[in-house]
Amino acid sequence: MVEAPDKAATCPAPVARSRGNVSSGPGLCLSLDPRAKLLCALAFCLLASGLNSRPVAGVALGLSLVLALVSGLDLLVLCRRTLAVNVFVVLLWVFLPFHLAVDEPLTGLASLHLAPTPGGLGLAWLITLKANAAFFVLIALLGTSEAEEVFHAMAHMYVPAKLVTVFFLFHRYVHVIGQERAALTTAMRIRCFKARTDVHTYRSYAYLVGMLLARSLDRAGRVYQAMRCRGYRNRFWLLDHFHWRLRDTVFCSLFALALAILTALHWSLS
């Protein structure tokens, strides 16, 4: 049996634990049941993907922003992540409103020019609102949970056991692999490696990846043997189950009410 890594006290190497949790103090979403949070996040993202009018998407963004602000998230992290997430949105703002059109004037010479795409600008607005609304809900609900809690909640929500095990093992070892990569990169830097656009650079990176692969496969063998030593018999046990409380029911009800209002607005406007 492998013990579930969901208590800080049972985890010998705190360095190896990354946190999805980016909260900074008391907040609404910290004390909620992770199952409730995962369910609400999923429901909101599903609804947000279906919205097709800008006012409703705006209301959704407003609601999600309020949730993110009261959830107890670190504001600095929130701002940084918002910027990172909007990179793809900026790309859409570049490409959606205009497209390259080819017209052939009487001279017979084809010429390229930028032509406005009908409805492109509105679509860019709509996507910006929807993408950010989904992002704020996701960070407010899942960013305030430990990653292990989210995986554990998945196990309770009919996600296949093997997949949940892969999630746990991935999360346990991704930092170890990251540290191995850092050690190899440092070794390269000490030998005056400078990344350039040439075959030497690509070969160096190729060997770096090769070393990471070779080592991680060796490690996988050792991890499995260690698990066997502790009595692992193809079942990853999860201990310390969640307790559904009144506040979870209240939160889910309020969230469902908000979703119902959004749906009603969506139907009345479309």
């Binding site: 892969v166 692999i177 692969l213 996988a220 063998g221």
Partner: peptide, 10 residues
């Protein structure tokens, strides 16, 4: 399973 998880990590 550990192998799949660690390769995913790579």
């Amino acid at each position: 399973l550990p192998e799949v998880a660690l390769l995913a990590a790579v």
